[in-house]
């Protein structure tokens, strides 16, 4: 049973004179609970694909189905609410909000969820921070953290709302190998213990081999 289904997805970037075909009739199926890695050379459309799965961008053609929902006619509010409830993002450059401390950054997805009291939110934040061994950094600012710590905070933020899908775009790309391994451990634990579906873009062959399946990309097309 597939949780993510892409059929015939096209994405074209139109800049002044050049037309870039970033995704060319892409078909992908990801099963619930699967840990999939996406590999391919730079510029082949991996991030574009992840953005489209994450409803951050719309394709020029084709259909995205997530958890049996389609989004052709969805309003911005519906897309936002779906992201909030079902998708967690982890980015290569962490994308923490510099003005907010660790706790407030992690809390972010819960802020946009209705019906959660401030206390309930705080509890959940503390729970995930504990799980990621970051409780002692709760009131630090992102600028006071190392790269690995930042990425752990970012993962905490991605999972705090218990989404069923996590999209990670080169989550270890800015980390040294030790920290990278640590982050991979966390993702694997999440996948096994919570059954969270994970789609991860990576350039690291050995990391990819540890996942359930590798999707290889070339020039906007799936090649294997």
């Amino acid at each position: 049973m597939s949780i993510i289904k892409l059929s015939e997805i096209n994405k074209v970037y139109q800049t002044k004179e050049i037309e870039t075909i970033a995704l060319d009739h892409v078909n992908i199926d990801v099963k619930r609970g699967e840990f999939v890695s996406i590999m391919g050379p730079s510029g082949c459309g991996k991030s574009t694909l992840l953005n489209i799965i994450g409803l951050l961008d719309r394709p020029n053609g084709g259909k995205v189905t997530l958890l049996d929902h389609t989004f052709d006619k969805s309003s911005d509010t519906e897309l936002s609410q779906f992201r909030n409830a079902n998708i967690g993002f982890v980015f290569q450059s962490f994308h923490l909000i510099p003005a907010l401390d660790v706790a407030a950054n992690v809390e972010l997805p819960l802020v946009y969820r209705t019906g959660l009291s401030a206390r309930k939110r705080r509890e959940k934040v503390e729970e995930v921070l504990q799980r990621l061994n970051m409780t002692h950094r709760m009131h630090h600012m992102p600028s006071e953290l190392s790269g690995g710590q930042c990425q752990r905070v970012a993962i905490a933020r991605a999972i705090v709302g218990s989404p069923s899908i996590i999209l990670a775009d080169e989550p270890t790309g800015n980390l040294d190998s030790r920290m990278g391994a640590e982050v991979m451990n966390i993702l694997h634990t999440l996948n096994k213990e919570n059954g969270t579906t994970i789609v991860m873009v990576t350039h690291n062959e050995s990391q990819a081999r540890d996942t359930d399946r590798i999707i290889r990309f070339f020039d906007g097309r799936v090649i294997s």
Partner: peptide, 12 residues
Amino acid sequence: EIGIRRAFGCTR
């Protein structure tokens, strides 16, 4: 920052 907030479910 707005992009980040949007990604995590903040509506327009």
